[in-house]
Lab assay of single mutants.
Amino acid sequence: MEVRTIKVFTTVDNINLHTQVVDMSMTYGQQFGPTYLDGADVTKIKPHNSHEGKTFYVLPNDDTLRVEAFEYYHTTDPSFLGRYMSALNHTKKWKYPQVNGLTSIKWADNNCYLATALLTLQQIELKFNPPALQDAYYRARAGEAANFCALILAYCNKTVGELGDVRETMSYLFQHANLDSCKRVLNVVCKTCGQQQTTLKGVEAVMYMGTLSYEQFKKGVQIPCTCGKQATKYLVQQESPFVMMSAPPAQYELKHGTFTCASEYTGNYQCGHYKHITSKETLYCIDGALLTKSSEYKGPITDVFYKENSYTTTIK
């Protein structure tokens, strides 16, 4: 009895394709271990004539594949690729409408935090270190965002349907971005203890939790000093293409032309909904596939993004 075979390709990165001759009487799992086709788990399936010449994702289970996976995804987590594939199996079914010149995501599976993050990423200057993220990001900007969303979920250790947080998501993504040249110098002034300067680099240099107003941050924000008295913390120097200011959701007025974009969060910790506000020729609110415009805006804002380049204080 002759062994019926077909020729397929296996890959971990969709760049390096490895030619395989597979036995049609055995499952993919018996031949390769966990195997995925377009995100779908085909591990328990036997090869079919229609699979001839198709590319299958496999887990990096030998040295060659491990090197290829690390170079593309910059992670050695053995569960990463499987999590990416199972997320992709959902995100490829989502709709990605162009809204006001940006790629958004039609609401499904509690994905409003991903839509808000995706919209924000198209408006701030950011370059990702893992080629996987950078490639998928370019495709997302062009309207094909399924891979990018699935990668975000995998890097953030999230599953489809789980509630997510924009600030946490951005923080994970910033860790995989090139923020080497970003720098922030802060000064804390206390009447009792004097003053202390701190220099922050990388992710810490672009994120701040405690106030939404970048102007206020430049002037000074009140913080408790270690001595128990009130101290003032203010920005001395900022070198970065953008800054992200966050605070627990509270009524906040966004003035046209003073910011790049913002995240609105309605609801409580267990259950809520994100919308995205962007400042173009007027203010726009993007909620999944829905767009509304207004000249002014007041609502429960939790993150505001500002364009920056270089700032030095005039406070002496």
Rank of each mutant, 00 (worst) to 15 (best):
F32G: 06
D38G: 10
H273W: 02
P130V: 08
T19M: 06
S181I: 05
S294D: 09
H74C: 05
Y311T: 13
G288R: 02
T169C: 12
Q175T: 08
A140R: 03
Q123L: 04
V189L: 09
F128G: 01
L65N: 07
G101H: 01
I315R: 15
E264W: 03
Q270G: 12
E125P: 12
T75F: 08
T10K: 12
T211I: 08
E68V: 08
N309L: 13
Y113D: 02
N187Q: 12
Q30I: 15
G194Y: 04
R184Y: 04
K95W: 13
N111S: 02
K127R: 12
I223A: 13
T76S: 14
D63S: 14
G82Y: 13
C190M: 01
C227I: 02
Y36F: 11
E71A: 12
D38S: 09
E239P: 01
Y265A: 00
T169S: 03
C261S: 01
D63Y: 10
E204Y: 11
Y306K: 13
N89I: 12
S181N: 15
D165Y: 09
A150V: 03
S25N: 11
Q237L: 13
N157R: 05
M244W: 06
D135I: 06
L81I: 14
Q122A: 03
F128M: 07
P224V: 14
G267A: 15
L81K: 06
V243K: 05
N89V: 13
K191C: 02
M85A: 04
T314S: 15
L119T: 03
A40T: 13
T232Q: 05
T64Y: 10
H273K: 04
F9N: 10
K54S: 12
M207H: 05
I15D: 12
E52L: 11
V206W: 02
L37W: 14
R4H: 14
Q20W: 07
C156A: 08
Y137W: 03
L102S: 09
L163C: 15
Q175D: 07
T314V: 10
Y57S: 06
P34A: 15
L133R: 03
A69C: 10
I223F: 10
V185G: 00
Y155T: 03
F305N: 04
T313E: 08
Y284A: 13
L37Y: 13
N129W: 15
Y57P: 02
A87E: 12
Q122V: 02
